[in-house]
Amino acid sequence: MVLHSRRQWQKSLYENADYDDNYTDPSFLKELRTNLNVRLFTFEEAVKGTTRLNNQVSCVTLFLVIFYLLYTGDVTPPNVLFVTGLSTSIGYIFYRGRKLFDFQCILEDSKTLLSVLVFGYLFAPLLHRLTNAISTDTIFSMTFFVLLLNLIFCDYGLSAAMVSKALSLNAAIFASICLASRLSTAFHAFALLVEAAVFFVLYPIFTSLYWHWYFLVPIFGLCCFLLYNVSLNILLFYVLFTGFINILCPYIFVAQQQYKHSIHGPWDEAIVEENNEGIIEDK
């Protein structure tokens, strides 16, 4: 009789004085929902999503290959700058589109380009001698770790707490300065700094606006062609690593989706939202 005389249990902390603190009413779990708003991705969607990561890996790989070719003397700075200038000009045409014939827009872009080239050329001798007191092995080790930071914190189009464009860019620039100090002349260092600006500043701006999964094909093919002339072992590792990221990882991700099990209920934290009428509601 005592139990029936108690006030009916409610989901309120101050309305359940007649019940024990660890009491759980059977009605509490009636609002339990599983896998609420869960989206299942197809294998095609997963593969297309990982192309952004592979694109950044290919950018880092291509940048390192260009450094190696400059370091060994297989290519000259004028050739590198000519090819880079040609490809950048084509990319700029697609990037500007209809604004290409806007004189004011072209003037502002030209000022920015001229400033970067002039200051880069003036500071290249200083940067070239900046790390003379540091051994080459230490320089290469630091380059590996900072480029790894570039890959980890790069913006791949997802909103995550660990995404940091500033940290990713600074890591890439620091790596380019370290590598530039190992080249033979200041002009070589200037060419490598220009490559760093193209790969880690301009190219991400272009791909963030016009990215499609098939953009990976040309940069992947170019990396394979250059690595074939550098080292077959590195080429094999690059191809296997690309296949692991772009094929095996999406397959594992899609196969494991069936084991998703998230629960939602009255214990979830309230989300404050404002409706169209300006009224704040708890959901």
Rank of each mutant, 00 (worst) to 15 (best):
L167P: 01
F145M: 11
S141Q: 09
F215P: 00
V163D: 10
A197N: 12
H188P: 01
D109I: 04
K165V: 06
S168H: 09
D109F: 04
N229F: 13
L149I: 13
R182G: 01
R98Q: 03
L158F: 12
S181V: 03
F153I: 02
I152N: 03
T138G: 00
F206D: 02
Y210N: 06
I139Q: 09
S115T: 11
L151P: 06
I106K: 12
S135Q: 09
F215Q: 04
A161Y: 13
F187S: 09
A180F: 05
L114I: 09
T185V: 05
H188C: 02
A180G: 15
F225K: 10
F206A: 07
L147N: 07
A191F: 05
L148P: 00
W211N: 04
C224V: 07
I177V: 15
T136P: 00
F145E: 03
A196L: 07
L130R: 14
R98A: 05
D155L: 04
Y228F: 15
F145T: 09
S135D: 14
S110R: 10
A161D: 12
H212M: 08
I177P: 02
D109E: 14
I177Q: 10
C223G: 07
I205Y: 04
F144L: 15
F103C: 02
S231M: 05
P204D: 06
N150W: 08
F140D: 00
Y228M: 09
C224G: 06
K111R: 13
H212S: 01
P218H: 11
Y210Q: 04
A186I: 03
N132D: 12
A175I: 08
D109P: 01
H128A: 01
L149G: 15
A171N: 08
A172T: 08
S208D: 15
F144N: 08
L232P: 00
E195Y: 03
F145S: 10
A191R: 07
C224M: 09
F190P: 08
I152P: 04
V198L: 09
I152H: 13
F123D: 04
I173R: 13
Y121E: 04
P204Q: 09
W211S: 01
V116Q: 13
L127H: 06
A171R: 08
A189Y: 08
V118W: 11
Q104D: 14
A166C: 02
F225T: 06
I139N: 05
F199P: 00
T207L: 08
A124G: 03
D137N: 11
R129L: 05
F174H: 02
A189F: 05
T112D: 12
F123G: 02
F144C: 10
L183G: 05
A191K: 04
S164K: 10
A171G: 11
I177W: 14
V118G: 00
V198M: 10
F144V: 11
S110A: 14
F199C: 03
S184C: 03
S208W: 04
L113S: 13
